[in-house]
């Protein structure tokens, strides 16, 4: 039995160290699927979430190493705002100003697949007006031939 227990513990330790818990979300989001396989970095992302009922949330999470009481510690910042297509530019700008390195972070849109195209169009217009011309849409990987 000992070897089996050894392996079990090894696996346990592996899973314990690699697990990352999903940050809580207000609503479940069903992602659309695409063939794109670009991986995103885990932190320093400005996340725009659009739920199926077309409400928009702007979410910024960053992990930083900070020295607190002489010890290096990983801290997590999370800024969470609700937004509309009208004030999205303002919300993004406030986050960019308050956060160090706010102008270099990547913008990611995580939208439910049932979101109306109109909401996306408004959002993209707002981003374009802010000179954010490059962003990512989070999708699920579509598995088929080709």
């Amino acid at each position: 039995m000992t070897p089996m227990v050894d392996v079990a513990f090894l696996l346990l330790i592996f899973y314990m160290t690699t697990t990352q818990f999903k940050p809580p979300e207000k609503k479940e989001i069903k992602l659309p699927s695409s063939h794109s396989e670009i991986k995103l970095p885990e932190s320093d992302l400005l996340n725009i979430t659009i739920t199926a009922d077309d409400s928009i949330f702007v979410d910024y999470t960053s992990k930083r190493e900070q020295v607190i009481d002489g010890k290096k510690q990983n801290t997590m910042d999370r800024i969470y705002h609700e937004a509309t297509t009208q004030n999205i530019a303002q919300v993004i700008n406030t986050i960019r100003v308050t956060v160090p390195g706010g102008y270099s972070m990547k913008l990611v849109i995580k939208a439910d697949k049932n979101v109306k195209y109109g909401t996306m169009a408004d959002l993209m217009d707002a981003l374009q007006a802010m000179k954010i011309n490059r962003f990512h849409l989070i999708t699920e990987l579509k598995l088929d031939q080709g």
């Binding site: 346990l12 899973y15 794109s36 670009i38 989070i138």
Partner: peptide, 17 residues
């Protein structure tokens, strides 16, 4: 831990306006 771990990193699609 096996059940709760999410291995699938989200995939992303790039859009340039």
């Amino acid at each position: 831990y096996m059940v709760t771990t999410i291995f699938m990193q989200p995939q992303a699609m790039e859009i340039s306006l």
